[in-house]
Structures are given as structure tokens and as C-alpha cells.
Design a protein around this nucleic acid. Structure first.
Lengths: 192, 192
DNA sequence: CTAATTTTGTACCTGTCATTCAAATATGTT
DNA sequence: AACATATTTGAATGACAGGTACAAAATTAG
């Protein structure tokens, strides 16, 4: 009943994600969003209610695609160490391959909104926890397989790996070439 | 000649830094700045020219105070490893002790502006390079003293330590308590 | 075919953004 | 004292932010 939407809300959220990811929350205007999505302002506000609500949906979409991507990488066949190295190297490729150097949307959001937006910060915190958890599982697999020293605290190592990855993704935004990031990967793997 | 300034520009820059640090660049308005600094808008624009110019001065002020703080920590007496651990622990204290959880202004700036502001990004890149360099010097001292394996690539280890610290400072903005950060420090030092 | 429902585009609104300006005020120079 | 210079304040500016209102258009249930 009623007139059907002439645009796909999922596509709209994806395009909104793209804009928010590139420009950040505060610097993105409703005009930017309608330009990118290709709908009118009326439709935008009818469908999503507010800039903030759309941002939250965009962030959740980022979470889903990002988490699936990383978790699939860590689920590849191979040794735990190889999978971890592969994931880090894939992240470097991903970040440096992006002409806009957007980095990680969750990291950018933490940096921009943690002081002012508790709800969004909670979402980001959970995203970090999820990644940390995936790292911990892989590290524990490596310990059972004897590739990683069993005496190490897997939880602490996972937290440290998460910090390393977050740092890498910030550095990817400022790095001029790949050498700095490759060094980070090498040193991180050397000390695992 | 002329009426003398009724405020200290250095104090004004410091207060501006405080606001930009807490709110980020885009979310800070000229009104926020004059409220915090305690001068009129005319004075603000007469003294600094634009919001962006004031931001750059605030960022440079951050760089100077931050770099001095960290470099002094790393210059303390003691073994290289102890100094590195001390620096990481001091950063955790600093970040968690801040009620606003502002994290690191350079990191926040990289996250917010790297896609859009080449000049500022260059400043941040140099700040990162300076910290990385201070880490490398300390690591090399540790290698000469035999505390850190000489076979390790000091430059790569320093890059990795920089990434770890950047990640920690992002996590400090979302972490609910100190455990996650303490784990990062422990794991980082364990693998040094 | 209509009634009911929903979307859409345009126009509009209020407030704020970043900046500028005029006038008043405070100093150094002659 | 008169003047030139520099700074202060706060109002004024044009542009745009974020969002709303509304009538016309599109669809489906009955």
C-alpha cells in the first residue's frame, strides 16, 4: 500500500557511508548526502529521519562489511601466523590502494566523536572488541599449534595487535609510501 | 604605536588548542573559540586571520608541548626498556586521566583532516616522524646496551612502536577502564 | 474507480557559520 | 594637543546548515 520508494535504501546507506567515511561526520552536509545518493532532501529525511540517524546506519553497514572481510581473511586455510600476516598485509594494500586515504571508518569515528557521542562511541567500542576477539581466537589457535609461545597472554597479545592495526590505519592516512607500513607489519610479525 | 593587545596571543593559542583538541576542527566554531579565549570575534580575526590559521598555530603548540614531554620522558635515566615502558605507562595515565578523553591531537587531526588538508597532514606526518625517531634512538641505545636483540631492525621496531602508541591513544578514547590499555603495554613490552 | 497511503520535489524556515566592518578606545609621535 | 597607528567590541553580513511543510504524483487495496 502506498507509493513504493524509488531508490534502494541499502544503496543509499552505502553511498552515505562512502561520504561520511571520506569527510567525517561534522564536515558532511545534507547537501553532500543528497548529491551523492541522488535523491531529494525530502526523500532523505523521510527515509532516515536525521543526519545522525543516517550516520549510525552507515556506520553499522561499515561494521558489517568490514568485519566480514577481516574475519574471512582470518578464516583462510593456513597457519595462524600466516593468516595474521596475511590480514595485516591485506590491510596495508587496502588502505594504500584507496586514492582518498580514508583509513578505517571506525577509527576515524572514534577520533572524531568519542568526546561527544556516547552512542556512536559504544558502537565503535564493540567493533574494536569484535576485531580483538577475532585476533585472540587466531592467536589461541596458533598457540595450540605450537607456532606461538603458549606462555604468552593471548588476550593481551590480541589487544596489542588491535592497537597495532589501529595505529597502522591512522598512519596509512599520512604515509607517503608503503615503507613505513611494511615495517610495522614486519616488526609486528617478528615479535609475535 | 597603536593600542596594545589586551590579551596574550600565546595564552589565546593555548586555549584554542584546548578547544580544537576536544571538539576537532570542523565541530569547533568561532563562537566556541571566543568563549574559551575570552576575547571578541574581531580581536580573534585581527590576531589570527582565520579559523584555519588559528588551528595550525594550535597544532604547532600541541606539537611542541607534546614532543617536549615525551622526549623528556625518554631521556630519563635508566635502561632503554624501562624508559620505553615508562613512556607507554605515562601515556596511559595521561590519556585515561583526561576527563574529556581527548586522546592525541595529532592522531585526531590525522583522522579528521588527512583526506582534505594537505598542509595540516604534512605537519602531522612530521610529528609522527619525530616520535618515531625518538623511539628509534632509544631502541638503538637498548641494542648497544644489550637489552634489546641487536639483530632487530631498529627502524622497523620504532615504526611498530609508533603504530602501537597511536593505536593505544585511539583506544584510550573508547576504553571503559584501564585493563585494555595495560594489556597493550604489557604485550608490547613483552615482545620488545 | 476510488480511497487510502506513501514518496517526491520544491520551497521554505530558523539558526548558525565564518568573516568583515564601523565605531570607539588606547598608545606612540610630532 | 593633534595625529597616525593599532586594537577592541559587538553588530552586521552573506552563505549555508539542518530540517520542515506541502501539494502533486504514484501506487495498491478494496
Amino acid at each position: 500500500m502506498g507509493r513504493p520508494k524509488q531508490f534502494d535504501p541499502d544503496v543509499a546507506v552505502e553511498r552515505a557511508m562512502s561520504v561520511f567515511w571520506r569527510k567525517g561526520y561534522a564536515a558532511t552536509t545534507p547537501q553532500d548526502l543528497v548529491d551523492e545518493i541522488g535523491i531529494g532532501k525530502g526523500s532523505l529525511y523521510n527515509a532516515f529521519g536525521s543526519k545522525h540517524a543516517l550516520f549510525e546506519r552507515a556506520l553499522l553497514r561499515y561494521r558489517d562489511s568490514q568485519a566480514a572481510w577481516l574475519e574471512e581473511l582470518l578464516d583462510h586455510p593456513g597457519s595462524a601466523k600466516d593468516r595474521l600476516r596475511g590480514a595485516l598485509e591485506a590491510l596495508v594494500e587496502l588502505d594504500l590502494g584507496d586514492p582518498d586515504r580514508r583509513g578505517c571508518m571506525a577509527v576515524n569515528t572514534a577520533a572524531e566523536l568519542a568526546t561527544s557521542d556516547a552512542g556512536t562511541t559504544d558502537t565503535v567500542r564493540k567493533m574494536f572488541a569484535r576485531t580483538e576477539s577475532a585476533f585472540r581466537v587466531t592467536i589461541e589457535e596458533g598457540q595450540r599449534a605450537g607456532e606461538i609461545a603458549g606462555g604468552r597472554d593471548a588476550a593481551a597479545t590480541a589487544a596489542w595487535l588491535l592497537a597495532t592495526v589501529i595505529g597502522m590505519r591512522v598512519l596509512a592516512k599520512t604515509a607517503e609510501d608503503a615503507t613505513q607500513l611494511r615495517r610495522v607489519v614486519d616488526a609486528a610479525m617478528a615479535s609475535l
